Amino acid sequence: MKKNLLLAAVSLVALSATAPALAADLAARPYTKAPPAAIAAVYDWSGFYIGVNGGGGSADTSWNLVGFGAEGSHNSTGGTVGGQVGYRLQSGQFVFGIEGQGNWADFSGDNISGITGFRNRTRVDSFGLITGQVGYAWNNVLLYAKGGAAVVSNKYDVYSTVTGANLDRADETRWGATVGAGLEYGFAPNWTVGVEYNHIFLGDHDITFASGAVERVKQDVDMGLVRLNYKFGGPILGRY
């Protein structure tokens, strides 16, 4: 009995001696920090931008010689190149903006008059757009509609179908309205590329030629453009 009590006492002393060492080993184990939460990159469409554009268009034009009747219609087609500057503000996934655009153009077409037998030619040599925009963004993809005012510079000529000589002419700058839509993609920090369609409503307008003849010209313009923009400011927001 005494022997058993002695063995138990010795075991208790040995256990007490090793307990601090075991506690020290546990305290020495390294602490592993949890990995940081992933950050999703979100494209921000807000800010000023400037860019260039190019494409083609068609101006559907009808001439009516006042006091005599309709002379006929033609499509003035060709290419255009220009630039744009604007500002956008993003709220959630909705994007609002305002933009000014100016383009040189070479839309030209003609037809033989059903009244005079001469050739009537229309040429659009420039146009400008001042528009508001509203769009919806899926991260770096933006779909938008636009509308506002348009101004177009036209040149009109009457030619002899026999000699080709210029018989009469007129120039005008006319105002109208425009609507359009576009799709834009942010492909790199601060850079976007997109496609856009615009329709310009110019209606009827009386034009006095050099000879004193008055033509009532009705005109509408359709065009498709490819656009490249540079946006100022940081293009990316971070969110958890």
Rank of each mutant, 00 (worst) to 15 (best):
K2Y: 09
K3D: 14
L7F: 09
A8Q: 13
A8R: 14
S11K: 13
L15A: 14
S16H: 10
A17V: 06
A19W: 02
P20N: 00
P20A: 00
A21N: 00
L22Y: 04
L26N: 08
L26G: 09
R29P: 02
P30F: 07
K33H: 13
P36G: 14
P36L: 12
A38Y: 08
A38M: 10
A40G: 01
Y43H: 14
G47T: 09
I50H: 11
I50A: 15
V52S: 14
G55Y: 08
G56F: 10
G56R: 04
G57I: 05
S58I: 02
T61H: 01
W63K: 05
N64I: 03
N64G: 07
L65K: 13
G67R: 09
G69Q: 06
E71M: 13
G72C: 09
G72S: 09
H74N: 06
H74R: 00
N75H: 02
N75Q: 04
T80L: 14
G83T: 08
G83Q: 05
Q84Y: 08
G86K: 04
Q90V: 05
S91P: 12
Q93V: 00
G97E: 09
Q101P: 08
D106H: 12
G109P: 03
N111W: 04
S113W: 11
S113M: 11
G114S: 15
G114P: 08
G117P: 11
R119H: 08
N120P: 14
R121L: 11
T122G: 05
V124L: 06
V124P: 02
F127M: 09
L129D: 02
L129E: 02
I130H: 01
I130L: 11
T131S: 09
G132D: 03
Q133N: 06
G135P: 07
G135I: 00
N139R: 07
V141L: 15
L142K: 01
L142R: 02
L143A: 15
Y144T: 01
G148Q: 02
V151C: 00
V152S: 07
N154A: 10
K155L: 09
K155A: 13
Y159C: 08
S160V: 14
S160Y: 13
T161Q: 15
V162S: 15
T163V: 10
G164S: 07
N166A: 03
N166R: 10
N166E: 05
D168C: 08
R169P: 06
T173I: 11
W175F: 13
W175Q: 13
T178R: 02
G180P: 01
G180D: 01
A181H: 02
A181F: 02
L183M: 06
E184R: 02
E184W: 00
G186L: 01
G186W: 05
G186A: 06
F187I: 07
A188P: 00
A188T: 06
A188L: 04
A188G: 04
W191K: 05
W191T: 05
T192F: 04
V193F: 15
G194R: 00
G194C: 03
H199I: 02
I200C: 01
D204T: 12
I207M: 10
I207A: 06
T208N: 09
T208D: 13
F209S: 15
S211Y: 08
G224Y: 04
L225R: 10
V226Q: 05
L228F: 14
L228P: 11
N229Q: 07
Y230H: 12
G233Y: 04
L237E: 12
